[in-house]
Structures are given as C-alpha cells and as structure tokens.
Design a protein around this nucleic acid. Structure first.
Lengths: 118, 118
DNA sequence: ACCTATTTGTCCGTATGTATG
DNA sequence: CCATACATACGGACAAATAGG
C-alpha cells in the first residue's frame, strides 16, 4: 500500500490523497475491511499536513469507499469493490472534463439524465 | 437576516451556521438569488473563525441550497425553496435521531428503501 | 469498572493562491 | 490593476469516541 502525492501538481493535495486510495481500491491493492494508515502517520510519510490527509479521507467517506471513526481510524467499506472505485474514478474524470469545457453543472446533469432515460 | 450560534452547545459551530441559514431559507427570510454575508464578515459578527463559517457554507452547498464562488461569495440557489429547506431540516433530524438510537447507516437506509418501495 | 493510548473531529490562527468584478 | 472573497494548505490545541490492558 504505497501512497504518494505531487506537491508541484495543480491538483489539491487532499484530492491527490483521495485519488491514491481510490486507485488502490480500484486495482485491488486495498480490499474491504482493511484499515488505512492513521491520518497523522500518512501525513508524515507524505510530508503534508494532517488536515490535508483528513480532507482526502472525508472525500472518500462521501463516496462511500471508507468509514471514519474516532479511535478506530479509516476502514475500507464492504461495498468498496474495485468496480465501484473504478466507476468513481471515471465519474470524476468526466466531471473534471465537463468543467474544463466550461459546462455548467445543470448541463452535465441534463446529459446524464438524457442518457439514463435513453 | 439574523444569524446566531451557541458556543456552549455540543452541536458543531459549523453545523449551527448551516442550520441558521437553512432555517432562514425555510421560513422565507432568505430567498433565492440573495447573497449571504461574506464568510469573514459573518465570522466576525458571530465571534467564530472564518473556517467555521466556510464549513457551514460548504455544507449548504452540498445540500444544493447555495452556490459558492471565489470573489463572488455565497448566493442562494434558484432551487432553494422553503419547502426544500424544510425537508432538509427534517431529513437531518431523522438521521440524527436514528444515530442517537444507535442505528447504523445501512439500517436507516433499509427503512427508507422499504418505505420508498411501499 | 478504570485507565490509557490511539485516532478522528472540531476549532482557532495564519498565509498564500485564484477566480470574480 | 485592484479589491473582494472563497479555496487550499500549514500549524497547533483540545475534545470525544474507540480499543485494549
């Protein structure tokens, strides 16, 4: 389980942390039930602030990939399958690209809805 | 538009900020298109840190009640109807109560799904 | 039942970056 | 160009939940 971030990248460090974990889940390196390193520990090994790692972890929780609890740490959820992680990666890519194209949220949602009802 | 927080409460200050705005939208005090006070200003008037207000604002954005943009501030979305705000309040109440009862997320989701399919 | 270490949660303060107007 | 205002990141402190002895 090897995580790293690139401080020179324009991508926020917290997002990079989340992306690293998501990638690991996607390729099966990290499996459901497994415990991620404590935020402080990971922060030290990455050379970033604890808050930055915690932010990445929170993001992963919102995506349903991990559960966070005080005193227990970050545990990969049962539903965190490689398939799901890969889908999340692709959704993020699509959203990012849509944004780069100057698309509004509503426009993208319209596209998605159109495809859903097709 | 009068917001307050209670520092002695166990409820996180950021959540209190969000709750205040949500309430204001719910009772029509704050209407779509309206601009909320800048985080820094509101923070000063509430006697809390800027981050605390921003956290509350982020929460409201996730709920779709406001839009946040650099240099522009926080604007109440077109979809931020009193009805929607009141529903959000009730959802939060239900979730909080379920948690107090020691219910897991999945258990609550099961209940909701059961009701949806009924 | 108690205590202690661990670990996230929240809050404060500060600094810098970046989009908006 | 300049002021405004959110976004991100750093650092430090204390609270609260969890686990283990």
């Amino acid at each position: 389980m090897l995580f790293r971030v690139d401080p020179t990248s324009t991508v926020p460090l917290g997002d990079q942390v989340a992306a690293s974990v998501r990638r690991a889940v996607a390729d099966g390196t990290v499996t459901p039930g497994e415990r991620l390193p404590a935020a402080r520990i990971l922060a030290e090994s990455l050379g970033v602030n604890v808050h930055t790692v915690l932010r990445g972890y929170q993001r992963l929780r919102e995506e349903g990939l991990i559960e966070l609890r005080r005193g227990r740490g970050a545990v990969v959820t049962a539903g965190a399958s490689p398939h799901r992680a890969r889908l999340l990666e692709r959704v993020r890519e699509v959203v990012a690209d849509a944004r780069d194209l100057g698309m509004t949220e509503e426009e993208l949602l319209l596209l998605v809805r159109a495809e859903l009802s097709a």
